[in-house]
């Protein structure tokens, strides 16, 4: 469920009482309701579902996750490689 797509906030405006903004999704720009992420700033990344920003993306955490993935299995790989060489 719940197709939500990350994009970068490019513009923040108040439109007839609601916080709205323009969010750039890899070159596609759409009007998005920012009412639920009042703390958001231009340049922040957010995740959008049916025209509503759900949360600010924690970019630091995203990088950390990727870094953890890239370290996975490294030790074993070296171990595995030397084993192969030996056989």
């Amino acid at each position: 469920m719940c197709l939500a797509v990350p994009g970068r906030v490019e513009e923040i405006v108040e439109k007839s009482g609601i916080l709205m903004g323009k969010v750039n999704f890899g070159g596609i720009v759409k009007d998005v309701c920012l009412a639920y992420v009042p703390e958001i700033a231009i340049g922040d990344y957010t995740i959008v579902h049916v025209g509503f920003a759900l949360t600010r993306i924690d970019e630091e955490s995203a990088l950390k996750t990727l870094e953890a993935f890239s370290k996975m299995g490294l030790l074993e790989e070296e171990f595995g490689a030397s084993e192969e060489a030996a056989s």
Binding site: G7, F25, G26, Y45, I57, L66, M72
Partner: peptide
């Protein structure tokens, strides 16, 4: 797209799969 494409990386997927297989 940023924060999508990075999480579709084939090599990292293989690392994760390897971990799952090991576990």
């Amino acid at each position: 797209m940023k924060y999508l494409d990075e999480f579709r990386d084939r090599e990292l997927a293989e690392r994760l799969l390897h971990e799952i297989r090991q576990t």
